[in-house]
Design a protein around this nucleic acid. Structure first.
Length: 554
RNA sequence: CCUCUCGUAGUUCAAUGGAUAGAACGCAAGCUUGCGGAGCUUGUAAUGUAGGUUCGAUUCCUACCGAGAGGACCA
């Protein structure tokens, strides 16, 4: 509210200086001593008008002061032409009260009236849930939550690969073992073994390819039965992981349904595709891209064709304004080609379908072994972190299993979301296992302390309010005020890491405040309780936006 | 060979063309009969190289060096 009032005032002031077309920023200064907001409007205007920045800044400052902006205590020219705004105590108090009590305080209207489909996670039945799926889920889930705060109507979608060579590899081994009711672990092991056989023995390779064809054709009852069982077991297992990760999907798509559609679409558009060396391809070169095969020389759809089928299916199953797909960054160029081909077919793809990439997780030491073998899956990573968290809680009278799970998920998600999406990240097991410092548990712990403090204060009969306020408000209030802007920016750029950075800062400021101030038995108990309530609310909402739990105890 | 992404303290990450480049881990030194110490306080240390644009460049442009990804029947 205050922010938009200041923006409006600057626009008015610029108009009075005949510089109304200046595009300026209103940002939070790097240092608290520079005020609560700062604008570079004078610097931009000066270069356009070819005048001295400090002179323009002074004129602009005078024009702003004349407007008496509600909630602004002081406006000063600083540095080489910045204009800094200091909020009044009354305005800060109003924000703190809203942060503590107003549920929609941090919401914006950026996606008002828009329906946004977000597709993420995309694991494959019959294969392990690996770390890439964890990363896609983490980024995708956070984006959906950030979008809801921007007033979007969000549809969560998952696209799973239930057909293809990987299925045949697993089934081949299971059939050899005559294991027709395998557990999820046995399916995983069968896939690994089948993959090995496929690579090493020509006879097995041919047999697996033949089996793959049978699966597509549904021609063998025993194969069909095993396939149905295995798919069900896999999907049930994934649902358990989604529960742990905090995701509830609205729509599911499968490659078995997008494949046939993809073939039809490609064959129906000879003006877009062309035959080449027995395959059907899309030429990307005219668009600065590369050529990709959509239907291979065996007449089978590749991922490219399947993605066209998926685009069509999405349109049929729900009306949406924007569709966001979250996958690994290695698919960035691939998606450019597919979306360019899709644009030539559906004509409204550009700008409506967005690809958002997550990076790859690398390991600092490379020594983190899963319970068995060297492959670190998403599940084994969560499990190991959970064990580490449990070890930290020995002797405490709390539901350890549950809290350890929330802390473990929080630690991984925080590590993924703390940097710009799309960048590869290095995950250091030892540092992450320490669960200290710049970590998810640090933020969760700050929230838990705030909750605990609120409980204690309420037991002592303290009522939150502004009946007793200090002369000067501090850095904690001035940090709290900026939460709604951070959330809105995260929505605009689909970048949750702004929230991660902010939360860590807020947690640090709060921990510092906590070490030096007192609520129960202090000088300002009512205001103290209000302030802590505001911190608790913002930390809780921030954790929610990242897809992390806010444990009551830990 | 071509295309794209990325090079910031010892390490992992921030920074909307703007003010003294901000945190955390590590290391060094402190704080506990505490409204939860998974905490707090102080110190330490960085923009790959060379140019260019600009009043101002970690940010934009060019070249080089280095890392990663992609480049026709895998996904």
């Amino acid at each position: 509210m205050i922010r938009s009032a200041i923006t409006q005032a600057i626009t008015t002031a610029l108009t009075s200086l005949a510089a109304e077309h200046v595009s300026f920023t209103l940002e939070r200064p790097g240092q608290a001593t520079h005020g609560d907001y700062a604008t570079n409007a004078a610097l931009i205007a000066a270069s356009l008008l070819h005048k001295n920045p400090k002179d323009i800044a002074q004129e602009l400052c005078d024009a702003l002061c004349a407007q008496h902006i509600e909630g602004v205590r002081e406006i000063v020219v600083a540095g080489n032409g910045f204009i800094n705004f200091f909020l009044s105590n009354a305005a800060l108090l109003r924000e703190v009260e809203q942060a503590a009590g107003e549920k929609t305080w941090a919401h914006s209207a950026y996606y008002q009236g828009k329906r946004v489909l977000v597709e993420y996670t995309q694991p494959n039945p019959f294969k392990p849930f690996h770390i890439g799926h964890l990363m896609s889920n983490t980024l995708g889930e956070s984006i959906t939550r950030v979008l809801t705060y921007a007033s979007a109507q969000v549809i969560r979608a998952n696209y799973q690969g239930d057909v293809g060579p990987h299925v045949a590899k697993a089934l081949y081994v299971l059939l050899q073992q005559q294991n027709l009711k395998p557990s999820i672990a046995e399916i995983g092991e069968a896939y690994v073994k089948g993959n090995q056989l496929y690579e090493e023995h020509q006879a097995d390779k041919e047999a697996i390819d033949a089996l793959n064809k049978k699966i597509y054709e549904h021609s063998d009852p025993q194969v069909n039965e095993l396939y149905a069982w295995g798919k069900r077991i896999s999907l049930e297992h994934f649902e358990e992981l989604y529960r742990i990760l905090g995701t509830k999907f609205d729509l599911y798509f499968f490659e078995s349904e997008t494949g046939p559609r993809g073939i039809d679409i490609v064959r129906a558009h000879p003006e877009v595709f062309e035959f080449s060396e027995g395959a059907i391809v899309f030429r990307g070169e005219p668009y600065g891209l590369h050529t990709r095969v959509f239907i291979n020389s065996h007449g089978l759809p590749t991922y490219e064709a399947k993605d066209l089928g998926l685009i069509e299916l999405k349109r049929e199953r729900c009306a949406f304004d924007v569709s966001i797909t979250v996958t690994a960054s290695e698919q960035t160029d691939y998606f450019k080609v597919v979306l360019t081909a899709a644009q030539a077919i559906f004509h409204d793809v550009a700008g409506k379908y967005i690809h958002r990439a997550h990076g790859m997780m690398r390991f600092a030491s490379g020594k983190m072994s899963s319970r068995k073998g060297n492959v670190i899956t998403g599940e084994s990573l969560l499990h190991d972190l959970q064990e580490a968290a449990k070890a930290k809680m020995t002797g405490r009278d709390i539901p350890q299993e549950q809290v350890a799970e929330e802390v473990a998920v929080g630690a991984v998600k925080y590590a993924i979301l703390k940097q710009h999406s799309g960048k590869d990240m290095v995950f250091d097991p030892e540092k992450s296992l320490s669960l200290e410092g710049d970590s998810g548990p640090y933020v969760q712990y700050a929230h838990t302390r705030a909750l605990s403090l609120i409980r204690t204060a309420q037991k002592a009969g303290i009522q939150a309010g502004i009946t007793d306020i200090p002369e000067e408000l501090g850095i904690l209030e001035r940090t709290l005020v900026h939460f709604p802007e951070v959330v809105e920016r995260a929505a605009q750029e689909l970048e949750p890491h702004y929230i991660t950075t902010y939360l860590t800062e807020l947690a640090g400021v709060f921990n510092s405040w906590y070490a030096h101030e007192r609520v129960v038995g202090g000088i300002y108990p009512s205001y103290g309780l209000l302030l802590v309530s505001a911190v608790e609310s913002v930390l809780r909402q921030g954790l929610f936006l990242l897809g992390m739990s806010a444990p009551e105890q830990m």
